[in-house]
């Protein structure tokens, strides 16, 4: 669709059993940009991210990252190709320490340079040997994102990152996302419209498993513009 796109999705459809949940979704993510997906609960946002990441097998359509097609690859190969999914459930490996969690993030690419993580989230440095199960919600989210950015992925698929977090942490994450977008592309599913409008270069609105609107440019991406899709 878009030759310059880092990640492009074309005509993607998916279903759970006999229930169709995604209908002919097409989107393009340019390098070093932030794309947001908004929509009501059940609109298919999470399904979209999971399908791109390889957790759900689509019934039709293509997903390509650069010149590699991602469809049919198991999730771990998708992640190795630099498309990483950060789930919304904030489930860190609670029995493992923060350090061990990060080690697993480094394992696939053998990239043990943790500087980016500790620069973005200095707090994790002091928590290194604590079991992840004892972290607060915000710290868990930091760890989830930190774990995913190891090995410098090209595309980060972030699912509802600020859900249930304190405003100060949301503000912190906002800056982190901006910083991250200098080297990678981000696809963020989010309900927090002020955040979306502050950082997104492009907004896709989903409803009932289909894209109903595409907004881009600073005049279109305003909270009042997006509100009608929630």
């Amino acid at each position: 669709m878009n030759a310059a796109a880092l990640l492009s999705v074309n005509g993607l459809s998916a279903s759970y059993g006999s229930a169709k949940v995604l209908f002919d979704i097409s989107l393009a993510v340019a390098p070093r940009s932030i794309v947001a997906c908004v929509g009501r609960n059940g609109a298919g946002k999470t399904t979209l991210l999971k399908t791109i990441a390889g957790f759900i097998k689509p019934t039709a359509g293509t997903v390509t990252a650069g010149d590699r097609t991602l469809i049919g690859l198991p999730p771990y190969d998708v992640a190795r190709l630099g498309v990483k999914y950060v789930p919304q459930d904030k489930k860190v490996f609670s029995d493992l320490t923060v350090r061990e969690n990060l080690e697993l993030g480094s394992y696939a690419t053998r990239d043990y340079n943790w500087d980016p993580v500790t620069t973005y989230f200095p707090k994790l440095k002091v928590l290194m040997d604590r079991k992840a199960g004892y972290l607060s919600g915000g710290e868990r989210q930091m760890l989830m994102i930190g774990r995913a950015i190891l090995g410098s992925p090209q595309v980060l698929l972030v699912d509802e990152p600020t859900e249930g977090l304190a405003p100060s942490i949301v503000a912190h994450l906002k800056n982190v996302f901006r910083e991250l977008s200098k080297t990678a592309a981000l696809v963020i599913v989010e309900q927090n419209l002020p955040l979306v409008c502050a950082i997104a270069d492009k907004v896709y609105a989903l409803s009932d498993g289909a894209i109903v609107a595409t907004l881009s440019g600073s005049d279109e991406i305003r909270v009042d513009q997006c509100e009608r899709f929630l």
Binding site: A53, F55, P74, P75, Y76, D77, A79, R80, K84, Y85, V86, P87, K91, F93, S94, D95, L96, E100, N101, E103, L104, G105, Y107, A108, T109, R147, A148, G151
Partner: peptide, 25 residues
């Protein structure tokens, strides 16, 4: 060992281990 840690992590959630690019097969 990191493989062992991946197994412990997988006992909690295979999906998350997969998401980190670890070959769960």
């Amino acid at each position: 060992t990191v493989t062992g840690k991946a197994i412990r992590a997988g006992i909690e959630s295979v999906e998350h281990v997969e998401g980190l690019g670890i070959n769960v097969a």
